[in-house]
Amino acid sequence: MRKTTSPEATKQLAGTLAPYLRAGDVIVLSGDLGAGKTQFVQGVAAALGVRGPVTSPTFNILLSYLEGSLPLHHFDLYRLDDADELEDIGFYDTLDADGASFVEWGERFPDALPYGYLEVRITVDAEGNRVVRAHAFGDRARCLLTVWAKDSKSRLVKCAGGFA
């Protein structure tokens, strides 16, 4: 099972996903507050070449980083109350746009998620380590997870119910 023992290790793991991302990819990040979802996005952003600070879009709902090798769109849906608000923030248009989209708290609106996406669930164990599990929904997400898991730097291990 893949555990990370520090914020830097979580970012390193996330960075190993970056080379395989392409426009239209959607990654849904789930986990409790403070689990490391934004740290995961920070790792991907750094690997894509984003030089500026990458922060949680909790109050902005959406932050986009366009200066990397692939545009990165980072949503935080925690503060939304209703799926109708997704249209107001340009959620659907952004998912279909030119970059990869990372969606924190996407599980709050399961009917709004696209057919294909990669779910990355981050939990915290009793010792404070992060446990990262990935599950693919749809063909493109399965391909993405397969190549990411085969990358020796990711050190993902197949387990019951997906990769960890």
Results as ranks from 00 to 15, higher is better:
residue 1 M to N: 15
residue 4 T to F: 00
residue 4 T to G: 02
residue 5 T to C: 09
residue 6 S to C: 01
residue 12 Q to V: 07
residue 14 A to D: 08
residue 14 A to H: 06
residue 16 T to Y: 04
residue 16 T to F: 09
residue 18 A to G: 09
residue 20 Y to H: 13
residue 23 A to R: 15
residue 24 G to S: 07
residue 25 D to A: 09
residue 26 V to N: 03
residue 26 V to I: 10
residue 27 I to C: 09
residue 27 I to N: 06
residue 27 I to P: 02
residue 27 I to W: 02
residue 32 D to K: 14
residue 32 D to G: 14
residue 35 A to H: 01
residue 36 G to V: 04
residue 38 T to S: 03
residue 39 Q to P: 05
residue 40 F to Y: 10
residue 46 A to I: 11
residue 47 A to R: 06
residue 50 V to C: 11
residue 53 P to T: 11
residue 53 P to K: 14
residue 54 V to A: 01
residue 57 P to R: 13
residue 58 T to W: 02
residue 58 T to L: 02
residue 60 N to I: 13
residue 61 I to P: 01
residue 62 L to D: 02
residue 63 L to S: 09
residue 64 S to N: 08
residue 64 S to C: 11
residue 65 Y to E: 06
residue 71 P to S: 12
residue 72 L to W: 03
residue 73 H to K: 07
residue 75 F to S: 10
residue 76 D to V: 00
residue 77 L to I: 09
residue 77 L to W: 06
residue 78 Y to R: 01
residue 78 Y to G: 00
residue 80 L to T: 09
residue 80 L to R: 07
residue 81 D to E: 13
residue 82 D to Q: 05
residue 83 A to G: 07
residue 86 L to G: 14
residue 86 L to P: 13
residue 86 L to E: 14
residue 87 E to D: 15
residue 89 I to T: 06
residue 91 F to L: 09
residue 93 D to L: 10
residue 93 D to F: 05
residue 94 T to S: 02
residue 94 T to C: 05
residue 96 D to P: 00
residue 96 D to V: 00
residue 97 A to F: 03
residue 99 G to A: 05
residue 101 S to T: 10
residue 102 F to R: 04
residue 105 W to A: 07
residue 106 G to C: 08
residue 106 G to N: 05
residue 108 R to F: 01
residue 109 F to V: 14
residue 109 F to M: 14
residue 110 P to M: 01
residue 112 A to Y: 14
residue 114 P to Y: 03
residue 114 P to G: 03
residue 115 Y to T: 12
residue 117 Y to L: 12
residue 119 E to S: 09
residue 123 T to S: 14
residue 124 V to R: 15
residue 125 D to H: 00
residue 130 R to L: 11
residue 131 V to T: 12
residue 133 R to F: 00
residue 134 A to D: 02
residue 135 H to L: 12
residue 137 F to Q: 14
residue 138 G to N: 00
residue 138 G to D: 00
residue 139 D to P: 02
residue 140 R to E: 02
residue 141 A to W: 00
residue 142 R to C: 03
residue 142 R to M: 01
residue 143 C to V: 08
residue 144 L to P: 02
residue 145 L to Q: 11
residue 146 T to D: 13
residue 147 V to R: 13
residue 147 V to E: 11
residue 147 V to A: 13
residue 148 W to S: 04
residue 149 A to T: 05
residue 150 K to A: 12
residue 152 S to M: 08
residue 153 K to T: 14
residue 154 S to M: 12
residue 158 K to V: 13
residue 158 K to M: 12
residue 159 C to T: 15
residue 159 C to R: 15
residue 159 C to I: 15
residue 159 C to H: 14
residue 160 A to K: 03
residue 163 F to Q: 08
residue 163 F to R: 05
residue 164 A to V: 12
residue 164 A to Q: 15
